[in-house]
Write a protein that binds this DNA or RNA. Structure first.
Lengths: 344, 344
DNA sequence: CTGAAAGCGCTTACAG
DNA sequence: CTGAAAGCGCTTACAG
């Protein structure tokens, strides 16, 4: 019952050597077609399934990759994971997942577990607490391929998959300008994180290009861009003497808060104030008015990460690179930003 | 570089036998404290990390469990996975994920891969297409523990984690009745799936209990409870001569559609029509009015599945059970269903 | 086209 | 408290 049939057992039953069985099942060219057929049929008949752990051990290849994400149930990450799984599945890799829960300590614990050669490579989105990258440098020394995505280590030479945050923010802001906004506010993410710094920079650059005044009062930083923080920001804007006529939000949750708070205050979106978000969360297509937002290409990010990782795993020279892949986003224009009274 | 230090190498450096090293690192009671200390320090110094594949192979235990879900990026599943990962992490298991993409063929392919003893047990939510369970019966024969959750095989004796859908739907419907609804509609899920059958039954039973007429016209079935299908249902209700004054929706997406379509038609929620959803998706707390819904306990479901699975894996007698665990939900009452003119 | 033999890196029953 | 030895189930270089 619990002791299952082995390749050797199968060999005995067929009066062949284990070598031949192994080769036949691997469809090796040196084995005759009839033999292969006999072996396959017998294997099916007796219900033989190879012990992949033994094979992994012998070949020193587990065909499996690890993922460390802050939280699986954050929609962005689950989409990235889906992209990774899809690519991995097609190329014969398994995917083992760990969540750091945004804890630096737990992230380090996980990297310790992953040093044991269970996986051949790792894809990581850093925990929000992580400022020190020693635990990842060890992988480099060990020759373990590593790819970061989204929240990447700024000071570490490594493979990184990111989105062109600067350009995306620039385009989003310019879109508001083209829709006749003159006083454009920005709800920003944590300025400890590169991607949110870039979004802020893109916003500023667009204003500069179009000779609009940059008003520091209109730039409100948040810790984690939560819905609740969005509500607070929106109320601050409401209380201002000179309110903004456009808001570029660094994610969709805060954009939704702004829409709701403003509407409740009798402000028409987009007529009085135009809103643009970032991420293309499902809610952006449901909220009324529908939210103009930046498609963050999460699934493609996962695919790109998996592609880069497996390429490095399979690279003959065992070369551990530090490639940076920047994905282009697209602005999805919906109702929340279209102002009929457009200039030009 | 790529050939890493082994336990044997470490033994040589310390003039000890591999057996002793192995025991020392496993904190075996028969090894002296000084020896343990020496071994641990040397291991740290030379950067030895055990080859866990070799250990897995030797011990015939991989300490890893597999998950097959329709799609990782469906919020319900990502929350279940999060619960599984959390429990597994605490108990020293790894989690390997596969998505069936709701394809029967792909689900079968995945079960083939998982027969190779990579994982010690499997947690499954069936693909929507799956009607035949042969591929899972094989695991039973092989003595591989299996736990189903949410979409479970009705005709198969197996471990199952479900939610008390009947009672949840009953409570939700009764809540509408208590809020003075007399004509309560139901947007139902696919009647090929047990959980949606149960929700429909719970709805019907509540109406019966309170002597309300069951009007088949008010029960609208859908294929996958999508937002779009919800819009279609909502419009059908609008066109009726005698509109419903309450709607119990089998999930939150359709509930949100109804809210939006009705409001656009000038119907006040909850005054004219009260709405209840199912699942407690994030959007239920954001949509206006906030949606009353059933908390589906996804995270707890994942934890329960992982707990049951690991118990079976570690069960001495290798007993493969068929336990059914039913989790209780709770009704989260928000604005969308509170009618001031409530009868007692 | 097929086989004998070695060995991947651990763990553990057995012996002392 | 420590060690020698066997072996987990495969794969593959070598030989024929």
């Amino acid at each position: 019952m619990s002791s299952r049939i082995t390749l050797k057992d199968l060999a005995k039953k067929l009066n062949l050597s284990p070598s031949t069985i192994s080769r036949a099942l691997a469809d090796h060219h040196s084995i005759g077609e009839e033999t292969k057929k006999r072996v396959r049929e017998k294997a099916e008949e007796v219900g033989f399934t190879p012990n992949s752990i033994a094979a992994s051990f012998r070949k020193k290849k587990t065909k499996s990759i690890g993922i460390i994400v802050p939280r699986i149930d954050v929609h962005f990450h689950s989409r990235v994971i889906s992209g990774i799984e899809e690519f991995a599945y097609k190329t014969g890799y398994n995917v083992t997942i760990f969540q750091s829960k945004d804890s630096f300590v737990r992230e380090k614990e996980i990297t310790k577990i992953l040093q044991n050669r269970m996986v051949e490579g790792i894809i990581v989105c850093l925990s929000i607490e992580t400022q020190d990258y020693e635990h990842f440098k060890r992988f480099k020394k060990l020759g373990m391929p590593l790819v970061f995505y989204d929240r990447v280590p700024s000071s570490l030479d490594a493979n990184k998959i990111i989105v062109n945050d600067f350009e995306s923010a620039f385009t989003a802001t310019e879109h508001l300008i083209k829709n006749n906004c003159k006083r454009i506010a920005h709800i920003a993410g944590s300025q400890n994180t590169d991607i949110f710094k870039e979004r802020l920079k893109g916003y500023t650059a667009a204003l500069k290009k179009h000779h609009l005044k940059i008003d520091p009062d209109l730039i409100l930083p948040t810790n984690n861009l939560s819905y609740e923080e969005g509500v607070i920001c929106a109320n601050k804007y409401l209380e201002m003497e000179s309110r903004p006529d456009g808001v570029f939000c660094a994610n969709d949750y805060t954009a939704v808060s702004v829409i709701q708070v403003f509407r409740k205050a009798g402000i028409n979106i987009p007529k009085d104030v135009a809103i643009v978000g970032f991420s293309n969360y499902p809610i952006s297509g449901i909220i009324e008015p529908n939210l103009t937002t930046v498609n963050d290409r999460a699934f493609q990010m996962g695919e790109a990460a998996a592609r880069l990782l497996t390429r490095q795993i399979e690279d003959e020279e065992n070369y551990i690179g530090s490639e940076i892949i920047t994905l282009n986003t697209e602005l999805i224009v919906r109702e929340s930003s279209i102002r009929k009274a457009s200039n030009k």
